[in-house]
Amino acid sequence: MRLSDLREVREGAPPPRYGVDDVITFGRRMRRRRQTAWAAGVAIAVAAVVAIPQLTGGSEHRQPPVLEQNAPQLLPFETTFTAYAAGRFQVKDPNTVGLGHASADISGCDEVCVLTVLRPGVELPGSLDGKRVATDPISDRPAYFLDTDDGGRVLTWEYADGARAWIQTSPVGPGQKAMTRTEMRQVAEALHVGTFRPMSVGFVVAYAPAGYRLTSAQNGVEVSVLGFEETAVAEARMAAPDRITPKNLRNGHPRVEIAVVRVPSRQAQTHIEVRCEATGTDGPRCQRWLPDARTLIEASGGPADELRRAVEGVTVVDTTVPVNQAVPASAQLTVG
């Protein structure tokens, strides 16, 4: 497993003051990475997406519409830990939830550092490999390091019966100080896994493209994204012990992603009507701006007519909404 793209995320993140083109480009780069990250066997959170947005009032944002009631038991999009400090490091609140994991960024690193916690019963990705290095148990449970072939490092440990977590770091650059094995253990030992809490986003999707199911949610200040995969792919992932896409389904099955992009200042060139365009290797993309000229809604990856309907049905809300309430039940996987 190579972790070099972790560094690209940090170096490619937009600076504190940036324009709409920077944010949109960053969002597209982020989405391209996700398409080849966890689905291909590696869970990597995006360093710049670190907080749940609290959108404030005004006529351009509304309360969430009422969605389907009495829905079947949906696959929950939940987290089991919150932000915490460990020495000079600060683990952020989880910003990414998938079919079997939740991930959070770790600040205080010169490199990019990410904590991933698997749901009980979900196995480590098969591609999480490298030279195994023994270490003492963490909280009396098995643990070991992996040194990757590009200079990154992984610490994985069992935090409960049948449940694992890991910390991974990117290679460091010149003059940077890597997180040491002792420091990685310090962060791991400070993890407290508690009750399940719903992951939330700041928008509601009234329509998801037909034949797709929700498989991921990522929420941040600049970009929030809901990811959908073809039903057969989503169900195959749920059947896999590590929730990774089987090799025979990794090509030719594009993801659909519905995103809300926020920029810090009003933009002069915006359009409130939906516009769709082809983007070459990324496939079709449809967009519309809210009247505030600071919030862009975008859908990509599927048929243009389906993406248009999805964009038209997005409502950006004044508060956050649990992911399972933000998406129609018909576009979600069920359990039990």
Rank of each mutant, 00 (worst) to 15 (best):
R62M: 03
L115K: 13
V122S: 07
E111F: 04
T25R: 14
M30H: 06
P72L: 09
P65T: 04
R33C: 08
L55G: 04
V49K: 12
T96A: 13
T96F: 14
E123Q: 11
R119Y: 11
G121E: 00
Q73H: 00
A85V: 07
V49C: 10
L124T: 13
N95V: 10
A86R: 11
S107Q: 15
D5R: 12
A83F: 05
H101D: 10
E123H: 14
E11S: 12
G121C: 03
G126D: 08
C113N: 08
A48W: 08
H101P: 10
P65H: 06
V42T: 14
D22N: 03
E60T: 13
E11C: 07
N95Q: 07
T82I: 09
I24S: 05
D93C: 08
P15M: 13
M30A: 12
R34E: 04
V50N: 12
W38E: 01
K92E: 15
A13Y: 10
D22L: 07
I24M: 11
P72I: 15
V91G: 13
C113Y: 10
C109H: 00
W38V: 11
T116V: 07
V97Q: 12
I52V: 07
P125W: 05
G98C: 01
R17N: 12
R28S: 10
Q54H: 09
V112K: 09
Q90N: 11
D93A: 06
A102D: 05
G27I: 01
D110G: 14
H61F: 11
C113I: 02
E11R: 11
L75D: 12
G98L: 06
A134C: 12
H61T: 11
E123A: 14
W38H: 04
K92I: 02
G58N: 03
V66K: 15
V133K: 08
P76C: 08
V42M: 14
